[in-house]
Amino acid sequence: MHRRQFLKLFFSVLGAACPTVSMARSLRIQSDDQGPVPHAANTPHRFLFSPDVHDSAVKDLLFTEDNHQYPVVNDIYVSGPDIALFHSSLARLKRLMKIVGYANFSLLGFDTAVKTAKSYSAIGAFSKRELEFLEGLYNTPASVYGFLGDRTASDLTDMIQKKQIQKIPNTGHYLFRGKSLDMYDTICSKIGSDVVLTSGVRGIVKQFYLFLNKARSCDLNLSLASRSLAPPGYSFHGIGDFDVGKRGFGVSNFTVAFTRTNVYDRLAGLGFVKFRYPPKNNLGVRFEPWHIEVI
């Protein structure tokens, strides 16, 4: 399949997407070693970790913003056979992003991702075990890691409808029409050209990639990763929130350095702007002065 063919398929699926109709119900994936197998979504829920494994007393430690970048006792790590699945799944997602393009990857539904991977030899089909690993990660309650935010996705196969979103010029990102787009336009009108959209709509596949990539940089510590990035199914970027920063400030927009910019000062001074994760929040997440709460 050529890239142009993929784009045609991708946007036709995106335009017709409906959360209650899942391509996964009839899709079959070629396993690496077991022949055709049912999609993981057809099997009973698998949890990567037991919902009871996390010591509730440890959660108190996670409420302080000072330790978001350090491991603490009872943090949850990927271990055993899941380590190989972690790395192979992340590598496949990275190849998928390269093939479909950054902007399209942000909108990709799980079923479309699985089908696209199978269609491109440069990506390779997700194995049965990889699908089970990803499903287990999605189904595991985020509180196991110490992340106490609400689940925002109703199903692993939720999809973003094209009619719901609008691409923001010169950013590579999309926003949901309505409240999100109105909020961003208002912020831009108040602050001016110094402010820029740094992250908009994210589907579950993009959140999988970001979360796994963050965990990789944290020595496979999923709890540590969750203190700065929502696990798949828990990101408010999937239903309306977005990030902003100072134009030209690069990755520093996602650090405490952003709070020392004129853009943050003006943003914080706008009475109508709320931050999803304020200082000393009780959700087990670091302070994110760039993350605008919409929903």
Rank of each mutant, 00 (worst) to 15 (best):
L212V: 01
A225Y: 01
G245V: 14
L175M: 05
R3A: 08
V13N: 07
S143F: 07
L96W: 02
V201G: 12
G269R: 03
G101T: 00
T198L: 13
P19Q: 01
S143N: 11
S223D: 05
M159W: 00
A41Y: 06
D52I: 10
I29W: 00
G136C: 08
A17L: 13
R177N: 11
V114M: 10
N67S: 11
Y138G: 07
G136R: 05
T64W: 03
M1G: 03
F147N: 00
G109Q: 05
F10N: 09
Y277W: 06
T259L: 10
Q207I: 03
D158G: 00
R46H: 14
K214V: 13
A16D: 15
G80S: 03
A215F: 12
L224C: 07
G172A: 05
K94M: 14
L222N: 05
N262M: 13
T157W: 04
I239Q: 09
T43Y: 14
Y70S: 11
L62S: 03
I292W: 02
D182A: 15
K118M: 12
R151C: 05
V73N: 01
G35T: 11
G80E: 00
R4C: 10
V72T: 02
A230G: 06
A125E: 15
R28F: 12
V72D: 01
A142V: 07
V285D: 04
T171F: 02
D265S: 10
S252R: 12
D155N: 14
F208P: 08
